[in-house]
């Protein structure tokens, strides 16, 4: 690869990385490098300084504490896909991670890098919105932002230039309050493997089979994850049969300003959102207990 000239620093701890960030305004953090480096190769990104956080061990790993799961920012997609903790408590994140690109990308790409890069066609953002995840950031102080508020635009987030995304907190979907069903379905671009449409659904059922709670978010169809909250409000308390889901989606899932490109038009993506949204809700329902 032949990127423009840049300086490279390797951080050893989060505080070390923050110090380097302070010293080098405009520096970019390098984690798995699977979004940043291709852009640098094409000279679409030409950062003067890279700060490599790839060996900061405190950013790694998946832990479960008191009904919450904490995923370190440096956790790779392959680790997410293979995690027993996620399989037992938040399978949708493992499911989505397993559908990212190919094994080489999954072995290097990280959840923190993925989320901070905020590619609208990426797979994880909608999953984090649908599960109600919280993004933990550290700068001069620590702060926490709901996933639904974190993504602010095309490749834009609430992450400050002097901050590091440290970990992601996700509710236990199979906790004491019941076994929510979840599903991530994806229609991938045949070249990039990115989502033309990815649908993340979480559904909780009452004992009588009616909907106790539901969430649905979509990747690939809009600049930020599309939160189909209106559809889900419609479902609460309703029996979760196919017709009800279809009706709610048809009436309330309207992507206002859909993405459009040479491969798939906005009109088509808006339709895909409905079909995939419906199918993800149905599958999540079937998996709920």
């Amino acid at each position: 690869m032949f990127p423009a000239r840049f300086d490279y620093h390797r951080a050893t701890t989060v505080d070390d990385a923050l110090r380097l960030l302070g010293e080098h305004p405009g520096a970019k953090l390098l984690a798995g490098g699977h979004s940043l480096i291709p852009m640098m190769k094409l000279r679409l990104a030409m950062p003067e300084v890279l700060i490599d956080v790839g060996r900061v061990s405190e950013l790694k790993g998946i832990e479960r504490e008191e009904g919450k799961i904490y995923v370190g920012a440096l956790t790779t997609h392959a680790e997410l896909a293979a995690s027993e903790v996620l399989a037992a408590h938040c399978p949708i994140l493992a499911e989505a991670a397993s559908k990212i690109a190919d094994p080489a990308v999954r072995n290097k790409g990280t959840i923190g890098g993925n989320v901070a890069h905020a590619d609208p066609a990426s797979d994880l953002p909608a999953v984090l919105v649908a599960t109600g995840a919280v993004i933990h950031l550290k700068g001069r102080r620590q702060r926490q932002v709901k996933a639904a508020d974190f993504f602010t635009g095309l490749l834009a987030t609430d992450l400050g230039e002097d901050e590091i995304l440290t970990r992601i907190e996700i509710p236990d979907l199979h906790g004491r309050s019941g076994h929510a069903g979840s599903a991530y379905l994806k229609y991938e671009h045949p070249a990039s493997g990115y989502a033309i449409c990815g649908a993340a659904a979480v559904v909780k059922k009452n004992a009588d089979g009616t909907c106790a709670a539901a969430s649905l978010a979509l990747n690939g169809v809009s600049a930020t994850p599309f939160d189909a909250a209106r559809v889900c409000r419609e479902l609460i308390g309703a029996p979760l049969d196919d017709a009800v889901i279809r009706q709610a989606v048809n009436d309330h899932l309207h992507v206002g300003d859909p993405l459009s490109d040479v491969y798939a038009s906005g009109l088509y993506r808006a339709e895909l959102a409905k079909v995939y949204g419906r199918r993800a809700l149905r599958l999540a329902r079937d998996r709920a207990r």
Binding site: P38, L42, H189, P190, A191, S192, V262, Y263
Partner: peptide
């Protein structure tokens, strides 16, 4: 795919699907 100005729109493996 070329656009009307003659730019190759599917010039990388991100867009051109083998």
């Amino acid at each position: 795919v070329y656009d009307d100005s003659g730019q190759l729109v599917t010039g990388t493996l991100l867009d051109y699907a083998v």
